[in-house]
């Protein structure tokens, strides 16, 4: 799997000669993805659909909580999830020395 997606990691030499770093890189990537997707599912399908009725019993600023998750909270969460993904992948890229940089060594 790792090979398909990261066949030719560009912009920087890998830290080791052997390919075991790819496997570790891919594992970290995968773990991050699973955690974020679990949150994605819980907030939207969990709070916004499956648990909407019990959550509606709680009211905050006039919003029944289930309705708030379905129409507002889930969207805020989605935006944050993608930001966290992008920031965290930067960290993982740096850790493995594969971040994409331009000639001046700045992030491209």
């Amino acid at each position: 799997m790792a090979d398909t997606a990261y066949e030719s990691t560009s912009g920087g030499a890998p830290p080791e000669q052997d390919n075991s770093w790819r496997e570790r890189y891919w594992k970290k990537n995968l773990r991050l993805m699973i955690v974020l997707l679990a949150i994605w599912f819980t907030v939207s399908f969990g709070f916004g659909v499956l648990l909407i009725e019990p959550l509606n019993a709680i009211e905050i600023l006039g919003f029944p909580l289930g309705l708030w998750f379905a129409q507002q909270g889930s969207i805020y969460t989605f935006v944050i999830l993608i930001l966290v993904y992008a920031l965290w992948m930067d960290r993982i890229d740096d850790e493995f020395g594969v971040s994409e940089r331009n000639g001046d060594g700045e992030r491209a």
């Binding site: 974020l36 997707l37 994605w40 939207s44 379905a70 889930s74 969207i75 989605f78 999830l81 993608i82």
Partner: peptide
């Protein structure tokens, strides 16, 4: 529509 058309971006 709200969740469907935004959640897909994740």
């Amino acid at each position: 529509y709200l969740m469907g058309w935004t959640g897909g971006y994740v």
